[in-house]
Amino acid sequence: MRSALPIEMSASQALNLWHGASLQQVRLGHDLTLRQISILLHIYLVPPPHTVRGLAETLGVTKPVITRALDTMGDLQLVSRNRDDKDRRNVIIKRTLEGALYLEKLGDLIIDQGRKLAI
C-alpha cells in the first residue's frame, strides 16, 4: 500500500507534471478530452450509480454533451450504458475492465511523471 504523504510543489511543477502526462497520453493514442477524462474519473472514483442526468448536473453541462462524451468512451469500451430497469428514463453508466485498466495506466503515467520532476 502506498502512503499518502503530502507533496509540496509549485504551480509550475504541477503544470509540468500535467503537461508531461498529457503528452504521453497523446503519444500513446489515448488522448481523451478533458471533459471525457473528468467524466471517466468521476465514474471510477465516486461510488455508483451514475446517470447521464447526474453527470450533466455534476459537470454543469447538458445531457447531450454527456451523451456525446459517453458515445466516444463507449466506442473505446471505457464505459457501458444501460437503461435503468426501475426508471426507463434514466441511463445508468457502468464501469468496464477496459476503463479500469485505462485509468490504472494513467495513474502510473502520472506517478512516473512526478518521479521525473523529483529527480
Rank of each mutant, 00 (worst) to 15 (best):
V91H: 03
I93N: 05
R95F: 02
W18K: 02
H19D: 01
R68T: 04
R53M: 03
L76K: 09
L28V: 13
A4Q: 14
T72E: 10
V79N: 02
T62W: 05
A21S: 06
S3K: 02
T72D: 09
R2T: 07
L97V: 12
L78F: 09
D85A: 14
R27H: 03
G20R: 06
G74Y: 10
A11D: 12
L70S: 06
H30F: 14
H42R: 13
L23W: 04
L97F: 12
P48A: 03
Y102G: 00
L109H: 01
Q24H: 01
R2E: 07
D71S: 12
G29I: 13
S80N: 12
K105Q: 11
M1D: 08
T51M: 07
D84H: 11
R35V: 06
G20T: 08
A56Y: 01
L28C: 13
R27Y: 06
Y102P: 09
H30R: 15
T33K: 11
K105D: 09
L103P: 01
I119D: 13
R95Y: 08
M73P: 10
I37P: 01
V91S: 12
E98G: 00
N82G: 12
K116H: 11
K94Q: 15
P47E: 15
I7K: 06
G54D: 08
G29C: 13
L59P: 09
M1P: 07
G29M: 11
R2Q: 08
T62S: 07
A118W: 09
K105C: 06
S22F: 00
D108E: 15
I110T: 07
G29K: 11
T96P: 00
V79L: 07
W18S: 02
